[in-house]
Design a protein around this nucleic acid. Structure first.
Length: 283
DNA sequence: CGGGACGCCTGTGAGC
DNA sequence: TGCTCACAGGCGTCCC
């Protein structure tokens, strides 16, 4: 479920409401992808700072009020939702008893943050800083943020020219630009009219520019839809429903292309499904 | 060193 | 109804 728009929408849903809270308790369920990396009790008493996002990771700063001169006790939690994770923030009141797939609770003075993840590909990892291990190691290979102004068409095109892999695979890898997961990578390539099997290095400058614009437009549109459905329903499941309605190729194998009528194809690239329209998307 | 395969887990839906 | 199998929106790690 979570690609960049979903993660960003999740962040916006609780960042302001939890900022300034003090941690009262931490509860761990079944192990996630990696161990927490610190005793859960060591988080109690810390203050929650401003939650930020990098790629599909969320960073929750947790600083302990200074206890003495020179005491450096900063740090935070790096969160990832994996394939099936979601985060829910519940203001005040009792946190519902944890279910089978609720693997992490951060109980604070302003409410509870709960990570639910049936497949447990997600992660919650303590790091002394965003730019120190282990967080920095995990973030090291991430490409540019899609809306970062420094990612110009020239920069994007130059990065693509160095790669020989298929353009869809490169988008998914996230080391040039982060955020376009399997759905949005397929949708952006459809919007750009580019065959997903095309070699990165063969993309012309105009087509690279168009692709970048389409990646941005696709993610922006998803953010817009997610935002509105969250406001209306406050239901994380509502967001995918909203975007599903707009998917032009993803999950539509065998169905006629909504633009030209050609049957949408499903192929496998790097062990992941790719959906595209052979009529609209050219090499 | 780039690029692809693997594995982590559980749930769900299709087909028999 | 119940079983088996393919597949699922991510990504770190390993191997060629």
């Amino acid at each position: 479920m979570p690609e960049l728009p979903e993660v960003e929408i999740t962040r916006r849903s609780f960042a302001e409401r939890i900022a300034g809270a003090r941690v009262l308790a931490v509860r761990l369920g079944s192990p996630l992808r990696w161990p927490l990396g610190c005793p859960p009790a060591s988080l109690v008493g810390r203050n929650v700072g401003s939650v930020t996002r990098r790629g599909k990771y969320l960073w929750v700063p947790l600083a302990r009020p200074a206890t003495g001169p020179g005491a450096d006790d900063s740090g935070g939690l790096l969160l990832h939702l994996g394939m099936s994770g979601s985060l829910a923030f519940t203001e005040a009141g009792e946190l519902a008893p944890p279910g089978k797939h609720d693997h992490f609770d951060l109980v604070t003075t302003r409410g509870g943050l709960r990570l639910t993840d049936p497949r447990r590909f997600g992660a919650v990892v303590w790091s002394p800083a965003l730019d120190a291990a282990p967080a920095a190691t995990l973030l090291a290979r991430l490409g540019a943020e899609p809306f970062d102004a420094s990612l110009t068409p020239t920069v994007f095109h130059a990065a693509l020219r160095l790669r020989r892999t298929a353009v869809k695979t490169a988008l998914l890898a996230g080391d040039i630009v982060v955020g376009a997961g399997n759905i949005y990578a397929c949708e952006a390539l459809f919007a750009a009219g580019i065959d997903p099997r095309m070699r990165c290095s063969n993309l012309s400058r105009p087509r690279a520019e168009r692709l970048l614009a389409c990646v941005r437009a696709t993610l922006a549109r998803a953010l817009e839809l997610g935002g509105s459905s969250l406001r209306d329903f406050r239901d994380t499941h509502g967001t995918d429903g909203a975007y599903q309605l707009e998917a032009r190729v993803y999950g539509r194998a065998g169905l006629p292309c909504l633009r030209c009528g050609t049957a949408v194809r499903r192929i496998v690239q790097a062990q992941r499904s790719t959906f595209f329209c052979p009529g609209c998307q050219k090499r």
